[in-house]
Amino acid sequence: MNLALFDLDHTLIPIDSDHEWGEYLSRSGLVDALSFRQANDEWFAHYQAGTLDPVKYLEFAFGILSQFPREKLDQMHRDFMQEVIRPAVLQHARDLVKQHLDAGDLVAIVTATNQFVTAPIAELFEVEHLIAALPELDSGGNITGKLLGTPTYGPGKIVHTEAWLSRMGKTLADFERSYFYSDSQNDIPLLERVTDPIATNPNDKLKAHAIARGWPILNLFDGHAQ
């Protein structure tokens, strides 16, 4: 068995699910559109630049989610999946994940985006294992606004991936081949730890790093590799 890890946003889907969730909230009139969209865009710009404070961002994101009862949140997310996510999922991405699943690889999505937003997307790709930022829940399953543990961002992806493998009695070294597909320079720490790092639809910073390191570059949404 090999290990196949996937980032999500701009890697398996050609959008940022976290940012698009914020846009969905604004369009739907569920938050104050002007102030929320400005804040959402600022956080996204920090993420793209690699200057995001993940704890502060997640507290902001979970604070918004905590304003809604869980039943309402789940209905909102079903609408979000139909309106935004399903139309964005391309067959090339489905085929790549399926290739690893069919080979019997241990597959996981490892994303900095929170579990509430990403769990249904992982299910859409038929990926059982999701490593994502966890919101604290109250006894009724409602989101309290607090982050559980540490963010799954940058080096935090290594921490969470190793903890997940450890719970199965495994380490990265137990796999003959370990793949990680990502688009962002934020994921270089984990890309450096696997046997097969694959820069997937990479931004300029990751593309330059991949070229310097001799890593393969996969333009997944164009359906071909370089």
Rank of each mutant, 00 (worst) to 15 (best):
R177C: 10
Y153S: 06
H129E: 08
Y24F: 14
L172R: 00
E176P: 03
I158N: 03
F175M: 09
A112D: 10
S26D: 05
L130K: 06
A199T: 09
G140H: 14
G145M: 04
L3S: 07
F175I: 10
H77G: 08
L172S: 02
I198N: 06
P197Q: 07
R193S: 03
D187I: 15
A61E: 12
W215R: 09
S139V: 14
R193E: 04
I158P: 09
Y179S: 05
L101C: 08
A112S: 14
H224G: 11
A103Q: 15
V117N: 15
L124V: 15
H19V: 09
A93N: 03
D41C: 00
Q185L: 05
V127D: 06
N40S: 07
G149F: 05
G140K: 13
V89P: 01
D79C: 07
V127K: 11
S17P: 02
G169P: 13
A61F: 14
P14A: 10
E23R: 14
A45G: 02
S66C: 09
L3C: 05
L172P: 00
F36E: 01
F180S: 05
I131F: 03
L5V: 08
K56Q: 09
F221T: 14
S139K: 10
D74A: 04
A173W: 04
L218Y: 02
V127G: 08
P120R: 11
E83R: 10
D204Y: 03
F60R: 03
V55L: 05
G223W: 15
S184T: 04
T200P: 05
H209Y: 14
K98E: 15
I198V: 13
S139T: 13
L73H: 06
G63Y: 04
E123N: 09
H19E: 07
L106K: 11
G214C: 05
L8E: 09
R86P: 09
E20T: 11
S28A: 10
V97K: 02
V84D: 07
N40R: 06
P69Y: 03
D102A: 12
Y47F: 13
R37F: 07
A133Y: 14
I211M: 12
L172E: 01
Y153K: 08
D102N: 11
R27Q: 13
I188W: 02
D32H: 10
V127T: 05
I109H: 08
T51K: 11
K157F: 02
A122D: 07
W21R: 01
Q99V: 04
Q115D: 13
H92I: 02
R193H: 01
G149D: 02
E23F: 12
L147D: 01
D53V: 10
Y24T: 01
I143M: 08
E162N: 10
Q67D: 08
G50M: 08
T152M: 00
I188C: 03
S166Q: 14
P189A: 00
G29S: 06
L90M: 15
F221P: 07
A132C: 11
F36A: 00
L124A: 15
Q67R: 10
K207A: 13
D41M: 00
E83C: 06
G50D: 08
K157Y: 03
N186I: 04
I109S: 10
E20K: 12
R70N: 12
N2R: 07
Y153D: 04
A61W: 06
I143R: 04
S184M: 01
T113A: 15
D204I: 12
A119P: 00
L58T: 03
I198M: 04
T200M: 05
N114V: 11
V55P: 00
K170M: 14
